[in-house]
Simulated scan of single mutants.
Amino acid sequence: MPALCEASVSAETIQQLQHRLQQQGYYQGTPDGALGQKTRSALTQYQEAQGLASGAITLESLRKLQLQ
């Protein structure tokens, strides 16, 4: 599944992503809409646990988290 261009992902989408990852125990902290190290780490952990391609925001990951 292709990765999204991170520059085109809105802060709102990233905040929603953080919230979903937080609900599942992957993201620690307050969702702030910034794509920092904590968000990347949480996303990678989630992707690996789900057997998804990891290391970038993908449509597949967003769909699995019900964000697309």
Rank of each mutant, 00 (worst) to 15 (best):
T30L: 15
T39F: 00
P2G: 03
S54H: 06
L52N: 03
R40L: 15
L43H: 07
E6N: 05
R63H: 09
A3V: 08
L4N: 03
Q45A: 14
S8R: 01
E48Y: 13
A7M: 06
A11G: 10
E6F: 14
Q66C: 12
V9M: 10
L17R: 00
Q16F: 14
R20K: 15
D32G: 11
A34R: 10
Q16W: 12
G25T: 12
Q37Y: 08
I57R: 01
A49E: 09
E60P: 05
L21Y: 02
A53I: 04
G55V: 06
L43M: 13
L4W: 03
S8W: 00
L35S: 05
E6W: 15
I14E: 04
A34W: 09
G25H: 00
H19M: 13
L67I: 00
G29Y: 11
L43F: 12
T39A: 14
M1E: 09
Q23D: 15
T30H: 07
Y27C: 14
R40D: 02
Y27T: 11
S41H: 08
Q15E: 15
E60H: 03
Q37K: 14
L35Q: 03
S54K: 00
A7Y: 09
Q50A: 12
V9L: 07
Q68S: 14
P31N: 04
Q22N: 11
Q50P: 05
A42F: 00
P31Y: 05
K38Y: 07
L65A: 02
Q22R: 09
S41C: 09
K64H: 08
Q23I: 01
S54W: 07
L21E: 13
T44P: 07
S54C: 03
G29H: 11
Q68K: 14
Q50H: 01
I57M: 04
P2Y: 01
Q47K: 04
G55S: 11
L43W: 09
L65H: 06
R20C: 10
L65E: 02
T58A: 07
P31Q: 02
A56M: 10
E60I: 05
A7I: 01
G25A: 08
Y26I: 06
P2C: 04
L43S: 00
Q45C: 07
A34G: 12
Q18W: 12
I14N: 03
C5Y: 13
G55A: 07
Y46A: 15
G36C: 08
D32W: 02
Q23H: 08
M1A: 15
L52V: 10
A53F: 12
Q22T: 03
Y27W: 07
L59R: 02
T58Y: 02
R63Q: 15
T58E: 10
T44F: 08
R40Y: 09
Y26S: 04
A42C: 07
K38I: 00
A3N: 12
A3M: 07
R63I: 14
T39H: 02
P31C: 08
I57W: 03
L35P: 03
A7F: 10
D32R: 04
Q37A: 13
L35K: 06
Q45W: 04
S8C: 14
Q37I: 15
L4E: 03
A49K: 05
Q16P: 07
L59Y: 11
R40F: 11
Q66F: 13
Q50R: 12
E60A: 14
A56P: 06
A3T: 06
S41L: 12
G55P: 11
Q47V: 05
